[in-house]
Amino acid sequence: MTESTGLTYESFKHWRRTFEAGFWLTLYTLNALFNSIVSQIDHPGTPAWQPWLWEWSSALMLLALVPAVVAFVRRWPFHFDSWRVALPVHLLASIPYSLIHVGGMVLIRTAVHGAMGEHYDFGPWWSTWAGYEYLKDVRGYFGVVALLSLYHLWVARLQGEARLLAEPEVGPPVEPVERPERFLVRKLGKEFLVNARDIEFLQAAGNYVNLHVRGREYPLRVTMAGIEDRLDPARFIRVHRSYAINLDFLAEIEPLDTGDARLRMKDGSEVPCSRRYRAQLKDRFGEAASVA
């Protein structure tokens, strides 16, 4: 089945990082701007710069924390089938998130107030943080998690999400289920098949393994250990804790001084090879520095 036209992951990925950075920057800038105006209206007798300092110091810290939340969501993603496990983990993570946010903004406010010749009083730390700041931060934290989860779902649909072909309920399977020759990829409501022999390399990413096929990435919800046992060992080999390659697409092996190696695939991609797995390559290719 042919893939849909229009916006593709291949075109989107070239400006994906710019889009992500711009989104969060725009979101927190607009939020700080509107909150500053409202705060200034709510505090008519306060010097005009103070409400703006309060809101922008908070926004700067929240923006600085976004990469940490992104990494944490990648490690503990929210899915319909795993949210009960992820929820308590994220509740615990929201505590240091809030403490860093509040601690950082208090330092910024204290420094600016000091430069203006004034004293900044945050108030009783425990009651102010636990009774007010954390209640706001936990809502904000899960708001960020929700946005990231929706975004990851959209990206997964855009790039195509692979799955193993299940054994049919009636009749014999169309291929070996334990070692499939093809993977079913669902992309923007359409389905097509990817041959296992066309997979150039595999990369672990949280609860997924990305299948790299002709410059495209298809996430498969499985662990690296789980998929490794179902690939043809004559063609695929593990080269790193997070990577496995198809030997048919290996172009060059570059030894490194650390004992590790850098693998160059025929499409120009580079894959790390750890010292632990480099011996397996030596067993297959001897001391050759490259393969045809």
Rank of each mutant, 00 (worst) to 15 (best):
G104W: 01
L193V: 14
P67Q: 02
G259N: 08
P180G: 04
V70Y: 00
L147Q: 00
L164W: 13
S98L: 02
P44F: 12
I37L: 15
F236I: 11
I227T: 02
P233Y: 09
R262T: 08
W83D: 01
A289V: 05
A68V: 14
T18I: 10
L7Y: 01
G215M: 04
R238D: 03
Y151D: 05
S149N: 07
R179F: 11
Q50V: 15
M265R: 01
P233A: 01
N195W: 12
H43Y: 07
E3A: 09
N246I: 14
T128Q: 10
Y277F: 15
L91P: 03
W54F: 14
Q203V: 03
D121T: 12
L92I: 14
Y134K: 11
G22M: 12
V185I: 09
P77H: 08
L164E: 13
H79T: 15
F19H: 09
C273Y: 06
L30N: 00
V138A: 00
A156H: 09
H152L: 07
D81T: 04
V291Q: 12
T29F: 13
P255M: 11
R197F: 03
F34H: 13
L65I: 12
W54N: 06
V69H: 02
P219T: 11
Q280W: 05
S98N: 03
I199R: 02
W83K: 09
